[in-house]
Amino acid sequence: MTTLLLFVLFALGLIGGFFSGLLGIGGGIIMVPLLLYVPSLIGLEAIPMKTAAAITIVQSMAGSFSGLMVHKKNDFVHTKLIIYMGSGVVLGSLVGSFFSKQIQGEVMLGIFAGMALIATVLMYIPRKKDDDLPVENVELNKFLAFFVALLVGILGGIVGQGGAFILIPLMLYVLKIPTRIALGSSVAITFLSALAGFIGKWGTGQIPFVMAIVLVVGALIGAQLGGRLSNRLQTASLRTILSAVITITALKMWFELNPIVGYLLTIGSVLFLLVFFLNGKRKQKNPDSSNITLKT
């Protein structure tokens, strides 16, 4: 292990931690592609998917915990949401991480790409105006929250992710949680998920701790910076940034798995965004007639 590799890992941890605090994600959606592709681009030995998954779960745990401290101060953390989703995601993550040692790296990459693609689709579903409700006024479907988190935990445990990049869209569009509360609460849920995944991968001897610790140091610093910036940005801006990050990652993963599928999904994404943009412009020019009152 060279000094250059350790420096690169620190820098990548800084980037992943920043997005963890900014967007309420563990950073793995960004970290895995960076670990897979950046070292080889600068002439270092490529990091295998299994190793990337193992050290990312440690970074995700540290980055989400650091980001949680910032969001807790801003009162964007929903306790009941954390209890129900946290218990589901912990159980699922323990199961997924325990069996991940028997799963091939290519299969892990496919699961990761599939999760990113689903998250991408969910993030572009039209959403009604986002009410910045106080935490105590947000309603929650407890059983749905638990089972959604359980499924995400199983998949996240396999690929070394806290799963926030797909948990957040599910919280926004399935559970109908306001954006800021979804972002703030997700870091706590992600921490619990990553902690369970860490225990599973540590117990099966999959974690190279020197690489993981260097990554964590960068993540802790980056998460504090990202969390502070998150409080200054508008809700729409946060959702746009998160959508872009997930979309780019999903497409990159599919190019890695199958270039033809990657090209088709890229073309489809461009067409979808074009239609989405034109439809938004049409609605601005022709407001809903239901908003027009007739004089009598």
Rank of each mutant, 00 (worst) to 15 (best):
M1H: 03
M1T: 01
T3A: 14
L4H: 12
F7L: 15
F7Y: 13
V8W: 10
V8N: 04
L9F: 03
L14V: 00
F19L: 12
S20T: 01
G21K: 08
G28D: 01
G28A: 10
I29F: 02
I30Q: 08
L34T: 01
L35F: 02
V38A: 04
L44M: 09
E45K: 08
E45I: 00
I47A: 04
K50C: 00
A54V: 03
Q59T: 10
A62Y: 04
S64W: 09
S66P: 01
M69R: 15
H71L: 05
K72N: 12
K72E: 08
K73G: 09
N74G: 12
D75N: 15
F76V: 07
F76W: 13
V77L: 01
H78P: 06
T79Y: 14
L81M: 09
Y84A: 10
Y84M: 15
L91H: 07
L94S: 00
S97Q: 03
Q102G: 09
M108G: 01
L109N: 13
L109W: 07
G110D: 09
I111E: 05
F112G: 03
A113I: 02
G114R: 12
A116D: 05
A116G: 09
A119G: 14
Y124W: 15
P126V: 00
D130F: 08
E136H: 15
V138F: 06
V138N: 04
E139Y: 08
L140T: 05
L155D: 07
L155E: 04
L155T: 00
G156L: 01
I158C: 10
G160T: 07
Q161H: 07
L167K: 10
I168Q: 07
L172E: 07
Y173N: 15
I177G: 04
P178I: 00
T179K: 10
F191M: 14
L192G: 13
A194W: 01
A196C: 06
G200K: 08
G205V: 03
I207A: 09
I207L: 07
M211L: 15
L215C: 09
V216T: 11
G218A: 04
A219E: 12
I221D: 08
G222R: 00
G222N: 02
G226E: 09
G226H: 10
G226R: 15
R228V: 02
L229C: 09
T235Q: 05
S237E: 14
L238V: 10
S243I: 02
A244I: 15
V245F: 01
V245G: 01
I246A: 05
T247R: 00
T247F: 03
A250I: 01
L251C: 08
L251D: 07
L251Q: 09
F255E: 01
E256K: 07
L257D: 08
N258V: 08
G262L: 05
L265H: 03
S269N: 04
V270G: 02
L271R: 06
F272T: 12
V275G: 12
F277H: 14
N279W: 06
G280V: 00
G280S: 03
R282L: 11
R282S: 09
K285G: 02
D288H: 11
S290Q: 11
I292E: 13
T293I: 07
L294M: 11
K295E: 14
